[in-house]
Write a protein that binds this DNA or RNA. Structure first.
Length: 825
RNA sequence: GCCCGGAUGGCGGAAUGGCAGACGCGGAGGCCUCAAAAGCCUCUGUCCGAAAGGGCGUGCGGGUUCGAGUCCCGCUCCGGGCACCA
């Protein structure tokens, strides 16, 4: 399609201009009020795709808008450059992950520049850069010192064929290795953890004050999963030395416990399994070890539950009744939550109900269900009601019974009140090459020893070989492996695990405030200057892990003294961007359904593609990339063609007194400024664009009117205002048109965001709707300040209303001046 | 299985509990042109009607309200996430 102007030349010109002028660079001593705008830094997977375009368009709009508001905007960019794909590519092609990654960074950088997104490139960070690794490692050492990092055993996916650990992604749905096809096992390894659970309560409570989408906060709340209940011991019958500890959120139902269940991984399983049950229990344990947790939860149907539990041969005593109940092992109980064992109350828990049915176990209700419960299918009842069959709890409501039962447990000395979290400590060890090495060494004499800070960074060697099995080259590199003990200088072995890349992304926003610092991760003053991030933008898929880890890390850094005096919450506002779908599924590299933006840059241009992403729907919503998308993007290109022609046409203008038609245009301009400002502030970019389109339509009609030429002042105000509003959305064409209209003056992006005149958006008269029984029967123009009595009188004298009433007497008249009157008959 | 979302014309979407469908895409007709493209103008939820006008209409079933796309209860279907909230 032929364009009204040379899109490519205009866009390249202004991209170079912003770079050359350093328009969006900011120094730490900038006197303006700060605004920290940040998009989640991308994993460099190659040239940008539409998800990036969408994300960085929203970010760039924020940067330019806040700048026009007079703020000193910090707009940094970097790359999350460690990660599995580069390592996989190395295994496949032999290219070192650094070479591969840096080529991908160059591609993505080029895409971002062509999008017209502006950054302070002087602050660019790559997480694989030794200057970032150094501080990553120093922070690790400080957390370790403070007791926030520790080692413990944890299961990993182990491929016996490859002799290596697999990421979840490398385990296929059928439980086999994606390289060798071997059946993947679980194997316990000694690994590093961060003690995020220490902050569970704070991370939960602080959510309330964050200006985040409710949905993201809800996801985090559920993830942390605080639950109050009781923990108590079950004595194994005939084994006075052995007790099994259980956690429950429903201690009030204890009289209904008709059996108990342990996780297959529970350490006491061997102890309590009798000889005749050993075979069945072993079979179950092997089965559980071969399933993923999601498989263990996906097979929720009753038939499968039968196969998923085995009797241990032992019984435990219910402390409330004093009676023995059978003890089972079942995979639906997980070792990772609570105590790894539960009391089962089939009458009040659906899963226990299904299991009990399958194994022929008794069911005793302890809460009276509603009368029609059994008639309507029955089953487990977990709602509220009166306690029954529960001795001293009978007649109580559930809340009271909970409290009373815990008191009883404490009096008897067998249990206590307990708060439990679903959140577990953060396992940060990865058995990978392309990540930040963990700065520890192992000495036979002194055990695990921290690397002295003056030896940082520990950087992986370059002369490594990538085996097709995926084994980390670090564990095979003799030169890296062998070192000396920092304490006695004796022989020691380096830690070969690297850090989860979520560690890198948990503090990069702090490094951006002071990326040049060679003495410390960042100067506290710099962090204090810019933190917290005022606007964080990124995909909803990061709503839980990344954001939770970053919230934890910020607090940990403050508490170990590295970031004194900053807000404990790193991200005040979070805009959770929706996903882009194609053919009904998420657009992603692994699905092979990416749409690159380069083609659009070459044809309609970045401005039109940006306008499309803003216009297509609310930023939080998912969007579908469909056949029609192409036409909508073309429509956005046509919008700029019209804008160009309107702004550059030899328009005849008039001076002198202004007419009512001129006033109407001025009112529309100011109304648009008010609407667009409000919409940008509430992230309603699609309606902001729609308002600009409406204004262009109106201005065009004004320019084409045959009865009178436009008034010069009105015309100039309209065009200049429109250019300023659009400047944050589509920066190149607006900069060019502004320069055309104001040669030699500061660029449109250095102008102040337009203000509206309240006088001009005030409405003197309003269209009042008159309904009869809720149906619109008439509309009349009334004074905006009309009184209730006048509005009612006007409504009741309307001819159309009288006709609709058909002689009936109104029973009631609802009057909402000046918008609406509803006559009820 | 659990958690989080979503559902409005042919399509993307708009709408402080108060005129459903702004804006755009697509479609139809017209102007301009030798012709086409581009541009400009008009119409475009659906049914009945020549028209004026009227009926119906926001996934389904209930409820609250003078009034519900919007709030409440119960479903269906679609999308995403997951480490079985005991």
């Amino acid at each position: 399609m032929a364009r009204a102007y040379d899109v490519t030349a205009v866009e390249r010109k202004w991209q170079r201009h912003w770079d050359d002028e350093g328009t969006y660079q900011i120094d730490n001593d900038d006197p303006r009020e700060k605004f920290y705008a940040l998009c989640m830094y991308p994993y460099p997977s190659g040239a940008a795709h539409q998800g990036h375009v969408r994300n960085y368009t929203f970010g760039d709009l924020t940067v330019r808008y806040q700048t026009m508001q007079g703020k000193g905007v910090l707009s940094p960019i970097g790359f999350d450059s460690f990660g599995l794909p580069a390592e996989n590519a190395a295994i496949k092609t032999g290219t070192h992950p650094r070479i591969f990654t840096e080529a991908r960074i160059a591609e993505l950088t080029a895409s971002l520049r062509r999008l017209g997104a502006v950054y302070d490139w002087r602050r660019e960070i790559h997480s694989h850069d030794p200057s970032y690794i150094k501080w990553n490692q120093l922070i690790f050492l400080r957390l370790w010192e403070a007791g926030l990092a520790y080692r413990a055993l944890a299961p990993v996916n182990w491929c016996p064929g490859c002799q290596t650990v697999l990421a979840n992604e490398q385990v296929l749905a059928d439980g086999t290795c994606d390289r060798s096809g071997d059946i993947v096992e679980k194997r316990n390894l000694e690994q590093w953890f961060f003690r995020i659970t220490k902050y569970a309560d704070e991370l939960l409570e602080a959510l309330d004050d964050l200006e985040w989408p409710e949905r993201a906060k809800t996801m985090q709340r559920n993830w942390i999963g605080r639950s109050e209940g009781a923990e108590f011991d079950l004595a194994v019958q005939g084994r006075p030395d052995v007790t099994v500890k259980v956690f429950t959120t429903r201690p009030d139902t204890s009289f209904g416990m008709t059996y108990a269940v342990m996780a297959p991984e529970h350490p006491l399983v061997d102890e309590v399994t009798t000889a005749d049950q050993r075979e069945a229990v072993e079979a179950l344990r092997i089965r559980a070890a071969l399933s993923t947790d999601i498989e263990r939860q996906a097979e929720g149907d009753t038939a499968a539950l039968g196969k998923r539990g085995a009797f241990t041969g032992s019984s435990v005593i219910n402390p409330f009744t004093g009676s023995p109940v059978p003890l089972f092992v079942a995979d639906y109980v997980l070792m990772g939550y609570g105590t790894g064992a539960i009391m089962a109350v089939p009458a009040e828990d659906e899963r226990d109900w299904a299991f009990a049915q399958q194994h022929g176990l008794p069911i005793v209700r302890t809460v009276q269900p509603p009368e029609d419960w059994d008639a309507n299918g029955g089953g487990a009842y977990s709602g509220d009601g009166v306690k029954i069959n529960s001795s001293f709890l009978d007649g109580l409501d559930i809340a009271t019974a909970k409290a009373r039962s815990i008191d009883w447990l404490e009096e008897q000395g067998v249990g206590e009140r307990k708060v439990n979290y679903r959140l577990r400590d953060w396992l940060v060890s990865r058995q990978r090459f392309w990540g930040c090495p963990i700065p520890a060494v192992y000495c036979e004499e002194h055990g695990v020893v921290p690397v002295p800070e003056d030896q940082l960074p520990i950087v992986a060697p370059d002369d490594v070989e990538f085996l097709p099995t995926g084994q980390s080259p670090l564990s095979l590199h003799e030169g890296f492996l062998h070192t000396t003990c920092p304490i006695d200088g004796g022989p020691a072995r380096r830690e070969t695990d690297t850090m989860d890349t979520f560690v890198d992304s948990s503090w990069y926003f702090l490094r951006f405030t002071d990326p040049w610092n060679t003495e410390q991760p960042f100067a506290p003053l710099a962090a204090q200057r810019f933190m917290p991030v005022d606007q964080y933008i990124g995909g909803i898929e990061h709503a839980i892990l990344h954001l939770l880890y970053a919230r934890f890390y910020t607090r940990a850094l403050i508490d170990v003294g590295l970031a004194p005096g900053i807000d404990r919450e790193p991200f005040r506002h979070y805009l959770a961007q929706g996903m882009i779908r194609m053919d009904g599924t998420k657009m992603s590299k692994s699905k092979g359904n990416l749409i690159a933006p380069e083609h659009y840059f070459d044809t309609v241009g970045a401005d039109a593609l940006r306008l499309f992403h803003l216009f297509v729907g609310p930023p939080f919503d998912d969007m579908d990339w469909s056949e029609q998308t192409e036409q909508v993007i073309e429509g956005c290109g046509r919008f700029f063609d019209r804008l160009w022609r309107t702004c550059t046409a030899e328009q005849t203008l008039r001076t002198g007194a202004q007419t009512p038609a001129d006033l109407a245009v001025r009112q529309a301009v100011h109304r648009t400024i008010a609407d667009v400002t409000r919409d940008v502030e509430r992230w309603s970019y699609n309606t902001a664009v729609a308002h600009c389109m409406e204004l262009l339509n109106l201005v065009q009609r004004y320019g084409n009117a045959t009865d009178a030429a436009p008034h010069a002042e009105v015309w100039d105000e309209a065009i200049d205002s429109l250019l300023k509003l659009l400047a944050v959305m589509s920066p190149h064409v607006t900069a060019e048109l502004w320069e055309h209209r104001h040669p030699g003056e500061p660029s449109v992006h250095l102008q102040r965001w337009p203000a509206f005149d309240p006088e001009l958006i005030r409405q003197d008269t309003v269209m009042m709707v008159i309904q009869v029984n809720g149906k619109v029967r008439d509309r009349i123009e009334v004074d905006a300040g009309i009184s209730e009595a006048d509005a009612e009188a006007a409504a009741l004298t309307s001819a159309k209303v009288i006709e609709a009433l058909g002689g009936a007497t109104p029973k009631r008249v609802i009057v909402r001046p000046p918008r609406l009157v509803n006559v009820v008959i």
